[in-house]
Design a protein around this nucleic acid. Structure first.
Lengths: 198, 198
DNA sequence: AGCGTTATGGACGAACCAGTCAAGAACTAA
DNA sequence: TTAGTTCTTGACTGGTTCGTCCATAACGCT
């Protein structure tokens, strides 16, 4: 009935994500995104509404994908729970170190730039953080059931601590910490988690 | 010989800091700062050169003052080293929780927005982080000498971990974590530090 | 094929913003 | 008092950016 879109919405969102991620919200121009995608500005505005709405969309997708990815890394049976936790912590350190452009995490970057003045971004960031904490808590509880972490520890508290360490690793990575430093933090963090008395 | 300045440079820097801190670099206009200080734009440019230079100046001062403040909190005799460490960790959690505007730390916010594309900011942030780590390491070593932390632990590694936790607390605070969560993280972090075997 | 509907793309408008400039003000040394 | 120097103010410039608009294109239903 009507003229179909020539572009793939998902692909445009990915390109926009790259731009916002590299440059931040304020420093990214809609025309950058238009050029990068080959679209005209009219199409961009027609499809997404405006800069703020486009960013919200990108930010939402990003938060969702981060939570999904972590969920895939942390969910599983009790026997491998500690291995999954360990792998996840090291993976974050390695990923942060590998991010030579020091872009960090769009979740952190977007929240840092906009959360104070944009309630939507703030809410979404909060929800994502809570979801990450819940995933960590679930895995730590599994570790406890399997005897890999002291049973008398509060899994929620440990999860909060691990989450803080992970966010801290990203923050330090953005500040230019070396890969050794970051993997060292990961190792130390895992080492200090309370093990069951034997 | 010449007309003297009517304004206090330090006071202008403080006002500029407030603006950059609240709005970020890109979203803050020079005219905002001019209005907030009561200065004309010409004076501002005459005294500080331009927006980027003004920000560098503000950022430098901020980093220096943060390092100074932490230095005052952490330096001292060995006997009180652990108390100082503990007080510092709790203080960061409390300060982050008290920051209801979720502005976080200008060091983190500025680095997040600009470090990728501004080498000066990146260098300054890195230097500040290294200084903080060194201060923590010094205090932790003092704790070890006093028998408050296991002597066989690597103080550098522990300092890096604590630093990551502190930066993580700030990141989570910006994402909207509650005061209980943040002080809980502080408590848990202190609790998992290795104590000497007795 | 004709028509209604939606997408396209680029020109346009209006606002905004960093930085400049010129005219005058304030001050001091001589 | 006067001359020389630096500061102040605010209007102005040139470039940039968000968002709109419109003529045109593409498509499917009838």
């Amino acid at each position: 009935m009507a003229r179909p879109r020539k572009f793939d919405e998902q692909q445009v969102l990915e390109t926009a994500r790259e731009r916002f991620w590299s440059g931040g919200y304020a420093a990214t121009r809609m025309e950058d995104i238009a050029e990068a995608t080959g679209l005209g500005k009219g199409s961009l505005y027609g499809a997404f509404g405006g800069k703020q709405e486009l960013f919200h969309r990108v930010f939402d997708d990003y938060c969702g994908s981060v939570v999904d990815a972590v969920s895939r890394q942390l969910r599983g049976n009790d026997a491998d729970a500690y291995a999954r936790l360990s792998a996840h912590v090291y993976a974050v350190a390695a990923a942060t170190a590998a991010d030579t452009a020091h872009r960090g995490c769009l979740l952190a970057k977007g929240a840092a730039e906009l959360a104070e003045h944009d309630e939507t971004v703030a809410r979404r960031a909060r929800a994502a953080i809570e979801a990450l904490q819940a995933l960590l808590e679930g895995d730590i509880a599994a570790c406890q059931r399997n005897g890999d972490i002291a049973a008398d520890a509060d899994p929620g508290k440990l999860a909060a601590l691990v989450l803080a360490v992970l966010r801290g690793i990203e923050a330090l990575g953005k500040a230019g910490a070396s890969e050794e430093t970051l993997t060292g933090i990961a190792r130390t963090a895992l080492a200090v988690l309370p093990r069951p008395a034997r």
